[in-house]
Amino acid sequence: MSDVGAGTGKVVVNRAMSLDGFIAGPGDAMDWIAEHVPADAFQDVMVATGAMLVGRNTYEVGKRMAHQDGSYDGGAQFVLTHTPPDEPDPNVTFLTCGLEEAVATARGAAGGKNLEILGADLASQCLQRGLVDEILVYVVPVLLGDGVRFSPPGLDRIDLEPFSNTQSGPITVLRFRVRK
Score class of each variant (00 low, 15 high):
residue 77 Q to W: 07
residue 78 F to K: 14
residue 79 V to G: 08
residue 80 L to K: 12
residue 80 L to W: 10
residue 81 T to R: 13
residue 81 T to H: 14
residue 81 T to I: 10
residue 82 H to V: 14
residue 82 H to Y: 15
residue 84 P to W: 11
residue 84 P to C: 12
residue 85 P to Y: 11
residue 85 P to D: 09
residue 86 D to G: 10
residue 87 E to A: 12
residue 87 E to M: 05
residue 87 E to D: 09
residue 88 P to R: 00
residue 90 P to T: 00
residue 90 P to F: 03
residue 91 N to H: 15
residue 91 N to T: 11
residue 92 V to E: 04
residue 93 T to G: 09
residue 93 T to E: 11
residue 93 T to A: 10
residue 94 F to W: 08
residue 94 F to I: 09
residue 95 L to V: 09
residue 96 T to A: 08
residue 97 C to P: 06
residue 97 C to Y: 02
residue 98 G to W: 01
residue 99 L to Y: 04
residue 99 L to E: 07
residue 100 E to C: 01
residue 101 E to L: 03
residue 101 E to Q: 11
residue 101 E to D: 14
residue 104 A to M: 04
residue 104 A to I: 03
residue 105 T to R: 14
residue 105 T to I: 13
residue 106 A to H: 13
residue 108 G to H: 11
residue 108 G to S: 13
residue 109 A to V: 15
residue 110 A to F: 04
residue 111 G to T: 14
residue 111 G to Y: 15
residue 111 G to V: 13
residue 111 G to D: 15
residue 112 G to P: 10
residue 112 G to Y: 15
residue 114 N to H: 08
residue 116 E to S: 15
residue 116 E to A: 13
residue 117 I to L: 12
residue 117 I to Y: 04
residue 118 L to E: 08
residue 119 G to L: 12
residue 119 G to K: 06
residue 120 A to R: 12
residue 120 A to V: 14
residue 121 D to L: 07
residue 122 L to N: 07
residue 123 A to M: 07
residue 123 A to D: 09
residue 123 A to H: 11
residue 123 A to L: 07
residue 124 S to N: 01
residue 124 S to H: 00
residue 125 Q to I: 03
residue 126 C to Y: 06
residue 126 C to I: 07
residue 126 C to K: 02
residue 126 C to H: 02
residue 127 L to T: 00
residue 130 G to L: 00
residue 133 D to F: 02
residue 133 D to H: 03
residue 134 E to G: 04
residue 135 I to E: 10
residue 135 I to R: 05
residue 138 Y to P: 06
residue 138 Y to H: 11
